[in-house]
Design a protein around this nucleic acid. Structure first.
Lengths: 337, 337
DNA sequence: ATAGGCTGTCGAAGCGCTTCGACAGCGCAT
DNA sequence: ATGCGCTGTCGAAGCGCTTCGACAGCCTAT
């Protein structure tokens, strides 16, 4: 393994000079710089990460804590993770992957050991047990998701409340008066995951304002669960003509069931999904949807974090504005029969 | 930040003693050990990762290189990544997340800087450009996937050839004589991803042995692409009664289309999928499937890697035996009309 | 009683880097 | 011609840990 000292010797300068060439923290004459850079290339030098972290007091690593559960929004999580990794690299950081499994201990371990300079937390619950630790340390962090109390925290999230409202407004504008919401699995609500509850708030208040009747039913993914839920919905509200689907894995089952029951989309029933665009366009009916901007969430989280690491900017809550794309699954409400 | 020296002082011993308590590399009297452990707890000490890496010449980090593409097998990738992270933790390692984006450079960077002690590569192509680097370094690595030449490499993968064979044998055993294979997207074959080609080999040789006619068609995910592919299949081979689907995101569209065309599953047409079990049971017809054991692949990869890091065991190719689970989507071939 | 071997602990060196203060050499203003 | 401030480079200290050799004290075999 090539060391700084070897590079220095090869270039005929001192170790500190090489270090300054690398960091740019002091001015170096053009000639020296070139000689050093040449030596670095010739020897294939890579600075040793451990030594760097020890001497420089920063590891250039960002920890990313992803949920252990694979039941929820897998493609979204994956996309966020990849966006985080890619964006981090463009800022010179690597990403350490932590699973939610260790919980608060992972936070303690990482901050305590200097393994990472900062962390990004996903799947934040309203009263997350990791939050007190984050508030109690001076290590920068960013949450993807919004807890109940954002005081002293930096958060990046889709504006779920506005997302919910957008869905209802779209359907209401098309004349639908009875709307059913196919929600996330019950476990998601029990866990008090912020986005689910906020979406519901948005849906409800928009329903109130537009005078629409709203029926919300949590639903596991999959065909059987959806069949059961759908039967109950039409049982309770036979006049339902609009659906808002939040659970990605309930979308295709819903469409299949509606087709099977002879309800045409969008002639008889309109469907709006909250899901990544890719899912919306690949479905059996091209779905009117509000996109979950996973990539942007990951990117923005890293950018906020890097800003904090560089001393720019403090705590802030970034809420991304939702956008609805109209596709083939929504249309005017059928004339009342 | 608490240091080793502070712990030592607090416990009334020397720094090296504390170090030996932590590492267990020399015997320590019970009394001393207890006093040291007590001090560690009281002070909330966490060893500094950088210093440890520098002095100990190992970072206790495993690098995991995942594909940048989000078009392929996302849930499988995610599940593997999580299994890797979890298993690594049980062996005392953390996981660094690299995206394929940097390609071979990432390998150089990580091995050169001592950032990670070892690496796991996913999405390995038959002639992967990262392989020469791996062969040329003494840093241990494990591939998830099988390149053309496995000499000097350790690989973990599902036995895709046997997987393909299993699918055909199952359908042939049920009396199907004409089988269509809905493959991965064309891009996957063009990239020469090993698993796709190997599966095809397995399918073909089993078809030869069982005297079954096989039609293979690559297919993008989504409803529209599937519709096109399906039309072509029945056009070319009207007598097709069996389907093997490798592309996860083509499964549900296929089922919907068959239903729409009045072909009952499994009475008229049988479907076997190659996908994670979760997908198979959540589909609109519970699918007969060969599972992709994502978790086990991740776990096994880490275990091989840790073995190599500890000097146990050398290169080895681990092929996991596939298992077919019969569910509701396959049945006897209909009597020839 | 004495030599030899353990066991448990310590001090010091060193891992490869960053960074601070020092200073040589230069050009400029006086 | 002298002094001053720059610019570019260097040497040394130190980051927090691991590990090696040394050695004190004790037990066992002679």
């Amino acid at each position: 393994m090539v060391t700084l000292a070897e590079v220095a010797q090869h270039a005929g300068v001192s170790a500190s000079t090489v270090s300054y060439v690398l960091s740019g923290k002091r001015s170096i004459s053009a000639g020296t710089r070139q000689r050093v850079e040449q030596s670095i290339r010739e020897l294939g030098y890579h600075p040793n990460a451990g030594a760097r972290a020890l001497a420089g007091k920063r590891s250039n690593i960002i920890a990313l804590m992803i949920p252990l559960r694979t039941d929820l929004y897998v493609p979204v999580m994956m996309e966020i993770a990849i966006a985080v990794a890619t964006t981090a690299r463009t800022h010179g950081y690597d990403v350490l992957l932590l699973t939610g499994e260790e919980g608060p201990d992972a936070v303690r371990r990482v901050t305590g050991s200097g393994l990472a300079d900062a962390m990004i937390l996903m799947d934040v619950e309203l009263e997350d047990e990791r939050l007190p630790l984050l508030r109690g340390t001076d290590q920068p962090s960013v949450l993807i998701g919004l807890p109940a109390d954002t005081d002293g925290l930096t958060c990046v999230d889709l504006d779920w409340s506005a997302t919910g409202a957008l869905c209802v407004e779209h359907l209401a504008g098309l004349g639908h008066r009875d709307i059913a919401v196919i929600g996330e699995a019950p476990a998601v609500y029990e866990r008090h995951t912020g986005f689910a509850e906020r979406t519901l708030d948005g849906l409800r208040s928009a329903a109130r304002e537009t005078g629409v009747r709203l029926l919300h039913r949590p639903c596991e993914g999959g065909y059987d669960a959806m069949a059961l839920t759908l039967a109950r919905v039409f049982d309770e509200r036979p006049a339902t003509t609009g659906f808002v689907v939040q659970n990605e894995s309930a979308v295709e089952p819903l469409l299949a069931l509606l087709r099977q029951q002879g309800r045409a989309v969008p002639e008889d029933v309109s469907v709006v999904a909250i899901c990544p665009d890719q899912v919306a366009v690949q479905a059996s009916v091209r779905l009117t949807s509000v996109a979950i901007p996973a990539q942007e969430m990951g990117r923005r989280a890293v950018e906020r974090l890097v800003a904090k690491l560089e001393g720019r900017g403090g705590d802030e809550v970034v809420l991304l504005a939702p956008g609805l794309t109209r596709r083939a699954s929504s249309g005017p409400a059928p004339a009342a029969s």
